[in-house]
Design a binder for these strands. Structure first.
Length: 692
DNA sequence: CATAGCCGCCTTTTT
DNA sequence: GGCGGCTATG
């Protein structure tokens, strides 16, 4: 039926398996694609978009949701490569929500020019909220409060609802903090990440006409990484497809690693109950990894109790390589990684096909040093490093105020940056005036002349600042990059950085302006508002350059969705993976850590190098570590296979004769150089592998 | 009002 | 070990 010679798009060029074909050519109604790692899921989704368009659906009526902006970018590119000219909406959930909320701002009860607050902004607001409630920051730690509120919002529990429920001392206080926090955000005309989802869900559920309009616009909804959606996202999806049920969700429960952020596995596990006529397609064949690597992954993930068993079917022929190595400390480990990378490149491997994964960002430092020492090009893929830079935040703050003058966080950030003689006392006086007259801080600034407590000199300085803002505002419409450039110069930021000799900072700003230029080019009608709102959702992961000849260093979380020829996973120690902060008594938490390791392993195509160190410096303290319990779950394949050369502290060099797999109590039989043969318990033996 | 320096806080993962 | 916030000093 699908001999496929008359496709408008290039789908016929792909060899698709029967299952993939079933998913690609599924027409209407709910579809769940349970896709194991390396099963060609991304390709299936893009082919499906092309197939839908081929069958007469307008691109405009398709909405695809990805987990990161980077993934959205790639999907767009892939679609173009397939011959799909564009027009389909492809973005993250958060980006989609920004667009919807802007369009229906009045009914969502917000203003369209809202700011999107990031973690640092949120932190300032919550601290203020705790203070306003006259509560102690030790008993109500701001970070914990944010976490709590985030969870509430993800569950679509708003202030009023939570207040009504709060019936004990602590929850009552938290309700109060929640309420104050929300009030501060409203005053600033700002939404946090979770608000974007919550407000959209409420909008869709309270206004059937809006829901209907969007349902008609997006006749087909595709959601990738469905295992990591939270309850708010689920409700949004449910509302968006309520008229036609054309939902296609893809994901893998074994790769769910964002439970801590509110991801709810039930979304994917209960898909069939939510959409009873759903077609389920399983993609179990793995086109990515060598069987040796899959074997290890399979053994590990089988230890998870709360899971539907699933096959991992290796398609690639052997031989892949799985190596487990013990090191003395993290420096030795990092050096060995660098050495191994060199060997791989000597054998012809490409640096961009090599990655190093770790559990926490702090572990990147040693690796970085080793790579620098060994002159190996690398790039660190980190959360928000770039967007957290002072100079970037400063320039963005200037731009944010132009869009949303109520954004006090942005305003206070730059009112005296670079210094223009407006200090704390002045700010307090303006603030007091604003409070007395119930106007915003920005409005108060405009009326500086009426504030008696301010000297003439200070009033003039404030006047100059406001005038500058007004001048910027005159050419706010049109392209973003030229405006950003102008603001950078005229604000004095540029001059300030030059005088301070901050050349790197200027470089960074230039990169930002370049990205704005790129935005101008790619967008039909670029506006500063849209740019600012979208960029607030960007992270460094989105800046990861997959094409540059550098080794990629990243956390296991950031590794999701990627693949490499050779993968290093370092720091396989108790307390680090599984991380001590994950509650190891809690089976769910432990299983998520295991899935995290699973995700890391299954990124590797050919070579997988796992390591742990006997000693590791954590927070400046050298601590003795023990191998991660997960290592004993990998089976003999990753362990000390017969023939493996090993070294023992007192017995010296030896060769493994036999490996008796007993999980954590595994025993290795080693014949040593001195003629002795010993049976050693792996966990006590302190054997290290010697690789030749 | 600006700046330097110090103290105390946190450090799992991120849209 | 790193950053934000506070304080003391110029």
């Amino acid at each position: 039926m699908t001999s496929g010679t008359d496709f408008k798009f290039q789908i016929s060029n792909f060899k698709l398996t029967p299952s993939q074909r079933k998913a690609v050519f599924h027409k209407e109604g709910p579809l769940l694609v349970l896709a194991g790692p390396g099963s060609g899921k991304t390709r299936v989704i893009t082919c499906r978009i092309a197939a839908l368009i081929d069958s007469g659906i307008k691109p405009y009526n398709i909405c695809a949701i990805t987990f990161t902006n980077k993934a959205a970018d790639e999907m767009r590119q892939r679609a173009v490569a397939l011959g799909v000219s564009g027009g389909a909406h492809i973005s993250t959930f958060h980006s989609l929500c920004v667009r919807i909320l802007r369009q229906y701002a009045d009914r969502a009860g917000i203003k369209a020019n809202f700011s999107v607050y990031d973690e640092a902004d949120q932190s300032k607001c919550i601290k203020q909220a705790v203070k306003d409630c006259e509560l102690d920051a030790t008993n109500f730690p701001p970070a914990r409060m944010l976490e709590y509120i985030s969870k509430l919002k993800n569950m679509l529990i708003d202030v009023d609802f939570f207040k009504a429920q709060a019936d004990e001392f602590r929850t009552e206080k938290i309700a109060k903090i929640y309420s104050h926090y929300q009030r501060i955000l409203t005053e600033h005309n700002a939404l946090d990440f979770d608000d974007l989802l919550m407000k959209t869900a409420f909008l869709l559920e309270s206004y059937p006409d809006v829901c209907c309009e969007l349902g008609n616009r997006f006749k087909f909804l595709l959601i990738d990484e469905y295992q990591d959606t939270n309850h708010a996202q689920y409700r949004i999806a449910k509302a968006l497809v309520s008229q036609h049920n054309n939902i296609c969700a893809t994901g893998d429960p074994d790769q769910s690693i964002y439970r801590w952020r509110g991801a709810d596995l039930r979304n994917i596990l209960d898909f069939e109950q939510d959409w009873p006529d759903a077609i389920i397609v399983k993609l179990e064949e793995n086109f990515r990894s060598k069987p040796e690597i899959l074997g290890v992954a399979d053994k590990l993930i089988a230890e998870n109790k709360n899971r539907k068993p699933k096959k991992l079917i290796a398609i690639k022929p052997p031989v892949g390589k799985v190596v487990l190595t013990q090191f003395e400390d993290e420096t030795e480990e990092a050096q060995a990684v660098a050495q191994q990378v060199k060997e791989l490149t000597d054998e012809g491997a490409s640096l961009k096909d090599i990655a190093v994964f770790y559990r926490v960002n702090a572990m990147s430092r040693v690796l970085e040093e080793a790579f620098i020492q060994n002159k190996i090009p690398y790039q660190i893929v980190r959360g928000v490093e770039f967007y957290n830079r002072k100079e970037i935040k400063d320039l963005l703050a200037y731009l944010k105020i132009l869009v949303n003058p109520s954004d006090d966080i942005a305003l206070l950030r730059i009112i005296n940056t670079p210094s223009r003689g407006i200090g704390k006392t002045t700010i307090d006086r303006v603030r007091a005036y604003a409070a007395r007259h119930s106007i915003s801080f920005f409005e108060a600034l405009k009326k500086a002349k009426n504030i008696d407590s301010l000297s003439k000199g200070v009033q003039a300085k404030l006047g100059a600042f406001i005038n500058m803002q007004e001048r910027f505002k005159k050419d706010i419409s049109g392209k973003v990059a030229p405006l950003a450039e102008r603001v950078f110069v005229k604000s004095g930021l540029s001059e300030f950085l030059r005088c301070a000799g901050e050349e790197d900072a200027i470089e960074n700003v230039n990169e930002l302006i370049n990205s704005a230029a790129q935005y101008d080019q790619q967008t039909q009608t670029p506006t500063l508002l849209d740019y600012i709102q979208q960029i607030s959702l960007f992270s460094d992961v989105d800046r990861y350059d997959t094409s540059s000849e550098r080794v990629a260093l990243m956390t296991l979380h950031a590794a999701k969705g990627l693949e490499f020829e050779n993968v290093f996973i370092v720091g396989l120690e108790e307390g680090l993976l599984p991380h001590e902060k994950s509650n190891t008594d809690d089976q769910e938490d432990l299983e998520e850590e295991r899935r995290l390791f699973f995700v890391g392993i299954t990124r590797a195509k050919v070579g997988l190098y796992i390591s742990y160190a006997r000693y590791r410096t954590i927070r400046g303290q050298m601590l003795r570590g023990s191998p991660s319990p997960f290592l004993f779950e990998l089976g003999s394949m990753a362990a000390f296979a017969p023939g493996q050369l090993v070294r023992h502290e007192s017995f010296g060099l030896g060769r493994v004769e036999e490996f008796i797999d007993m999980g954590e109590n595994s025993v290795v039989v080693v014949k040593f150089e001195n003629g002795q043969t010993k049976s050693l318990m792996l966990k006590y033996a302190d054997l290290s592998k010697v690789n030749i």
